[in-house]
Computed example of a mutant assay.
Amino acid sequence: MSADLAVRPEACSTLTGAVHSWDLSTGVDGPGTRFVLFTAGCPLACAYCHNPDTQSMRGGTRHTADEMLARVARYRRFIAASGGGFTISGGEPLLQPAFTTAMLAGGKELGLHTALDTSGALGDRAGDALLDATDLVLLDVKAIDPAIYEDLTRFDLSPTLRFADRLATRGQRVWVRFVLVPGWNDAPEHLERHAAYVASLGNVERVDVLGYHRLGREKYARLGLVDRLEGVDAASPEQVQAAREVFAAAGLYAP
């Protein structure tokens, strides 16, 4: 675990982060209507990423934490009335742990529910101050088999599992996300193993099974990137429902 990344409130006026974009969303980035800040930069190269333009920090614009918190504050009453809050996503927000800590702590100071949307791949960079300021972790566990995970992401699975275990030890509230990619991570034995692991953590409140889709694939050609899932069909509603039933059979809430 990294050293605690406490950020003094007065430092927020000069502390900057690489921001890709921001938006308001309902129902997909945590409970209620939420202000979602998308940071730029990610160490993973997920085959199914529908926003590959967020993978490089060069694609972001520098903003201070104060600037972004002022923007969040404009929507504070609206999102609080819906039972919503503030979510920091990416890219991968833990690539910028000091900025992410400041944003989450600032969200708490605004009286908002806070959520961290992460792959967990850089979980070792999350200090206790960051997690203390986080009400909910949206943890994207992309595969439970190390070889499949590396094939999908070009990264090692072990940091994500280490982070998940740390969150379980802390009793941190977690929603797990899982993108179902036909022919890659949808084998019944893989799903059953994945569900068993998630259920064993004891702190996972729900599992969101998301079907792979081809929206945004045109970005790959525009960015000069290879589409490694060229020819792979989108996950059908029936395939997604079957996967949800596997997680539900393990005692998990999988709406």
Rank of each mutant, 00 (worst) to 15 (best):
G224A: 12
I88F: 10
A196T: 08
Y197A: 14
D29G: 02
E189W: 08
G84R: 08
V198E: 08
E10L: 10
A3K: 10
P182C: 13
S236Q: 10
A6Y: 12
A196C: 10
F38N: 02
A70D: 15
A234K: 07
A3I: 03
L225N: 06
T153M: 00
L24H: 11
E10T: 05
R8N: 15
V181Q: 06
G123N: 04
T16R: 10
F155W: 10
L225R: 00
E92W: 03
D145A: 11
D151P: 05
L229V: 10
V19S: 08
L136I: 04
L94I: 02
G30D: 03
L5Q: 09
D156H: 07
L139C: 12
M57N: 03
L95Y: 00
R222W: 07
A248Q: 14
V179C: 11
V7Y: 03
A243N: 11
R193L: 06
L225K: 00
D117W: 09
Y48P: 13
D117L: 10
L110C: 05
L15G: 01
R214D: 13
A11K: 01
G183L: 09
D165C: 06
V36L: 08
D227A: 04
M68G: 06
P9R: 02
R71N: 11
A18E: 14
G251H: 14
A133C: 09
R162G: 02
P52D: 05
Q172H: 13
E67M: 08
V209M: 11
V226T: 15
V176T: 13
A254Q: 07
